[in-house]
Amino acid sequence: MEQRSDRDEFSDFAGGRWPSLVRAGILMGCSLSDAEDLAQTTLTRCYQQWSRVARADNPSAYAHRMLVNAFIDTKRRRRNSELLVAQPVEGSISDPMQEIRLDIERSLGQLTQQQRLVVVLRYFLDLSERETAEVLGVPTGTVKSRLARALEALSADPRLATIALEASDD
């Protein structure tokens, strides 16, 4: 039986993680191109430290931690460089799925950065509370309290009220 090389293992890992890393970047507040840049930065860092990532108990959680760190680094460097607007500048939206995505992004945009990260990791990347705590480097109780506050804020938003109520039943 042929042994797989580190390059092959990383290639499989990166291919499997790319969509969720990009999606997480978008849900954390990045544009599509910025989310792709963030995912690329994350996977580059994973490749540079592949032996450590591959040995981790949960390589996906390790990569998500790198994603969060890269996101925070990016926010520090680009503070106040973009002007966010409540409504799209160009005309109306014809794609109903795009409207739903915009509603989700607007609603998540009302949360603090810490709350938004917890919601994205917990509900969109489907990490457990313990895994979310590991990724963020905080106690599990902190994850629970941030989630409770985030879900309370989201439940006040009529666009996401039903999603927040369903999530709180988990």
Rank of each mutant, 00 (worst) to 15 (best):
D8M: 12
L121W: 00
D8E: 15
I93W: 05
Q115F: 04
E134C: 08
A133I: 02
L121P: 08
G29H: 00
R78N: 12
A63F: 03
S92L: 10
L160Y: 00
R79Y: 11
A150F: 02
D170V: 15
C46L: 00
C46P: 05
V119S: 00
L108F: 05
I104Y: 05
V68G: 04
S60F: 11
T112H: 04
A39I: 03
A24T: 04
M66C: 10
G91I: 04
F124V: 09
I72D: 13
W18S: 06
D12A: 14
I100Y: 11
I104Q: 10
K75I: 08
L121M: 03
E9M: 10
A150V: 05
C46H: 02
A56W: 07
R55V: 07
A24F: 04
G15Q: 11
S128H: 03
E9D: 06
S20K: 12
M66S: 12
R78G: 07
V143M: 06
V135K: 03
E105N: 11
S33F: 09
I26R: 14
T74L: 15
R52W: 08
L136W: 06
L151M: 10
R130Q: 14
D12H: 14
S81W: 12
I163C: 12
D34Q: 13
N69R: 11
I163S: 13
R101L: 12
R122M: 01
S81F: 14
S107G: 07
V138C: 10
E99Y: 11
I104S: 07
Q87N: 13
R45T: 15
